[in-house]
Design a protein around this nucleic acid. Structure first.
Lengths: 227, 227
DNA sequence: GCGAGATTGTGAAAACGTTCACAAATTCGC
DNA sequence: GCGAATTTGTGAACGTTTTCACAATCTCGC
């Protein structure tokens, strides 16, 4: 019923990976991901007492192009010294500030199943400075889980605690059927970033950022490359 | 010491996400990932007894553009019927065949830590038809783990069993220090696809396909979008 | 079995991301 | 302190991916 010159008008074409706005520039999502990679590479260099690094060296470490490294950093300022490179410690501080990981971020995990429990015990988050402080489930079997003894609350307390504790980031590991319902409540309570392990496309307002980690898809698409 | 007209000659610029070759055409990695998404969406439709679907409907389900769906499918053939759409069951069969998930794939998991154990218990793989049949660790605490009671072997048996059982796909959840060493052994033993949860860039020959799942990076890059 | 309506498959255009290439800036050995 | 060597930051070129737009094709109700 649309005009003859308006094909496919029902498409919304909202590609899941969009770009962010910082100040005036638009930062591509891929750049933000690489910023994280740079941070970790710098961390390793620092541990090895390396004090300077060139874009070429950093790029080599990560299998990237040196111009890309320089361009990525140039989105946020001029951190390098021509003829020298980058000061490792300094650049790392800058990046941590840009990423917002130089402050405490309150993280909760919802859905204490196999995967949820594993993530609560997983060392990788801690090492990057993330502390999951709350866990929720529809059924509270143990009051505390994981090495860090994270307290487990019933989902009925979700909305209250999220609000009271200003939880901004949530890891979602609930069954597929429950995901959208929980997401709606999270958004209402003020959560603005979700790391979603549930293989369901979540419907949320634009200001809420969702990253999808889809393990089954990773396996399936790998299988394509087998011979 | 390179010629004056050859800048940055040490860069290799091998972007981690490259494309695959099928017959003559090059299939972008992003297309393969979406193929998996389509497969799952079709699975859901089938469960709900839906027998036909248009590119617009499928795209809407996944937040994509309808032309993209059609183009993606067009890489592999003409599966649709103008004026009608796609037959759900038929298209799904086609896609499963293209992805190679219509046959048994032998999968092993290496590194039975928190994350490894969780993945062995995780239902998501099973639902998509993947069975992890072997697990390996440097220390065998239990002879069988997970709901499916997967046998755990010592890593010294890795090379032999990989070869004997024709294991093609491996899930890697070992500590960072061990990752490259294990990867080298896997490649020698004939593994050609790795799902790598270790935050380390693995050095492997071109014919080995690696997908990286980097949970810490996902968290960090999410934090960028908080306010 | 005809015709209005729906939907595909696909060239062409637009958007986006990466790499090249080089002037400008700084270093550092002597 | 000079000058060769190094390395940044960035416009322009290039390549890839996504979206548009529409002719060709098929459906399905009457």
């Amino acid at each position: 019923m649309t005009g003859p010159k308006s094909p496919d008008s029902s498409d919304e074409a909202q590609n899941p990976e969009r770009s962010a706005v910082l100040g005036e520039k638009k930062i591509p999502a891929a750049v933000v991901k690489r910023l994280s990679l740079y941070t970790r590479a710098l961390q390793n260099l620092e541990r090895n007492k390396v004090e300077k690094v060139s874009s070429t060296a950093l790029a080599g470490e990560l299998g990237l192009n040196s111009a890309q490294v320089r361009k990525d950093l140039a989105y946020f300022g001029q951190f390098g010294v021509p003829g020298f490179g980058y000061h490792v410690g300094e650049l790392r501080q800058h990046l941590k500030h840009i990423l917002g990981t130089d402050r405490e971020i309150n993280v909760a995990l919802i859905g204490v199943g196999h995967l949820g429990k594993a993530l609560l015990s997983y060392g990788g988050f801690h090492r990057q400075g993330f502390r999951i402080m709350w866990a929720f489930d529809v059924e509270v079997r143990e009051s505390h889980v994981g090495v860090e003894r994270v307290p487990v609350y019933h989902t009925s307390e979700l909305d209250r605690i999220i609000r009271e504790e200003s939880i901004e980031l949530v890891i979602l590991t609930v069954p597929a059927e429950a995901a959208q319902g929980i997401a709606d409540r999270l958004v209402k309570a003020g959560v603005s970033a979700i790391l979603n392990f549930v293989p369901t496309r979540l419907q949320t307002p634009d200001h809420v950022k969702i990253h999808y980690v889809d393990l089954a898809i990773e396996m399936e698409s790998l299988s394509f490359y087998l011979r």
